[in-house]
């Protein structure tokens, strides 16, 4: 295996991990602040992608499409929070799982109803297409590189928001003691709507950016949602830092496993058997990683308690 291929796959893993982080950050924030498990987070990812594809189709502008994905997912998130999610904060996790599963059914079938079953396509804009040459002679698609950089900027912005701003202080206080900050005069229900909409907007953005690489279709959010769950179980539920570390671990493990394992088995097996065994094993690799983390640290790498 050459260094170039290795570096390229490492970057792919990084890009995948960054996208997972945008999903996992919202999930873990919502859980940390409101104590809510939200299965419908994948639907917000889908809504972002559909909004972007629609706006890109109408206007031809990729930047407008990204803005639309943020806005559509944030609005959808705020509406869902105010109509349904708000009633679930005091319920047990089973009720939360069921109600948000019901939301998935409604949102997925509703989207299928409006847009049909055929996938939509979102094109990479011409100024971001084509490869760039990185130091070391690595040829890498400019669009994927842009995703990595954009994702890192969003991640940095999120950390700054939580560590440095007034809203961030309220969010952290809400995690620690929600009654106390309500008593101190913070409008807690507004804060919850805001946090939910923020998480939704991040998921929508991820959906739009990935939508340009893959196709935009109903159900696209579900595999990503489950990976995001794996990420926050590994990182520790409620921890943004854990979500970042978990995302990168899962992204890189999944991508590198898919490339390396078949080659490893190829050393002592014939080629077709090695591809088969390697492919099935590599699809299980991140779950094995999760199991391993759980054996050592049942509450995740950065989890409390």
């Amino acid at each position: 295996m050459t260094f170039l291929l290795f570096a390229e796959q490492l970057l792919n893993g990084l890009q995948f991990g960054i996208m997972l982080f945008l999903m996992a950050a919202g999930l873990t924030l919502v859980f940390g602040v409101m104590g809510l498990i939200n299965l419908a987070h994948g639907s917000l990812y889908m809504i972002g992608a559909f909004a972007a594809a629609t706006v890109a189709g109408l206007t031809g502008s990729f930047l407008l499409a990204l803005a639309a994905s943020l806005a559509a997912a944030a609005v959808a998130g705020a509406v869902i929070e105010m109509t349904v999610i708000r009633r679930l904060y005091k319920r047990d996790h089973l009720d939360q799982v069921l109600a948000t599963f019901a939301l998935i059914l409604i949102l997925s079938e509703g989207t299928r109803w409006v847009f049909g079953s055929f996938p939509l396509y979102l094109d990479v804009p011409s100024y971001l297409s084509g490869p760039v040459t990185l130091p070391g002679g690595i040829q890498y698609p400019l669009y994927r590189l842009t995703i990595i950089v954009a994702g890192l900027i969003v991640a940095a912005g999120l950390f700054a928001l939580i560590a440095r701003t007034r809203i961030g202080i309220q969010i952290r206080a809400g995690e620690a003691d929600r009654e106390m900050i309500a008593a101190l005069g913070v409008d807690i229900s507004k804060l919850y709507t805001l946090v939910f909409a923020l998480g939704a907007a991040l998921a929508g953005l991820a959906g739009a950016m990935v939508g340009a690489i893959q196709s935009v279709q109903v159900g696209m959010g579900e595999p990503v949602l489950i990976l995001a769950f794996v990420v926050i179980v590994i990182g520790g539920i409620g921890s943004i830092k854990g979500a970042l570390v978990g995302s990168l671990l899962v992204g890189v493990t999944d991508t590198m496993g898919g490339v390396l394992l078949p080659r490893m088995f190829g050393l002592f097996m014939d080629a077709s058997a090695a591809t088969t065994v390697g492919a099935s094993l590599s699809s299980m690799l991140i779950y094995i990683l999760m199991a391993a983390v759980l054996i050592v640290r049942p509450s995740g790498l950065y989890g409390s308690a």
């Binding site: 926050i232 179980v233 539920i237 999760m290």
Partner: peptide, 10 residues
């Protein structure tokens, strides 16, 4: 709790 739900799902 939530960990159990997510892990069984995973």
């Amino acid at each position: 709790g939530v960990y159990f739900i997510m892990i069984t799902l995973a």
